[in-house]
Amino acid sequence: MFLRTVYNTIFRRSSAFALSILVGAVFFERAFDQGGTALFESMNKGKLWKDIKDDFEKNDNGGGDDDE
């Protein structure tokens, strides 16, 4: 049974339990941070620099050439 396997491999020994918490925290951090960023970007769509970048960089390229 699945739960029995999980119990015997992870929860039975405190060392394995603590280690699995730390390893889980690494993956959780990555998932949580990326999820939060994705949520923020979807809620602020259209206001971020990467969304409006193209409008400015077209003008910038011309100006940059003049400077040089």
Binding site: L3, R4, Y7, I10, F11, S20, G24, F28
Partner: peptide
């Protein structure tokens, strides 16, 4: 008993993961 303990430990472990993330 094993499956019930596994569930309890999984809850403890999950809160531990969140706690470790928050503490870090």
């Amino acid at each position: 008993s094993v499956s019930r303990r596994a569930f309890t430990y999984a809850m403890v472990g999950a809160s531990g993961v969140v706690g470790a993330y928050a503490a870090k």
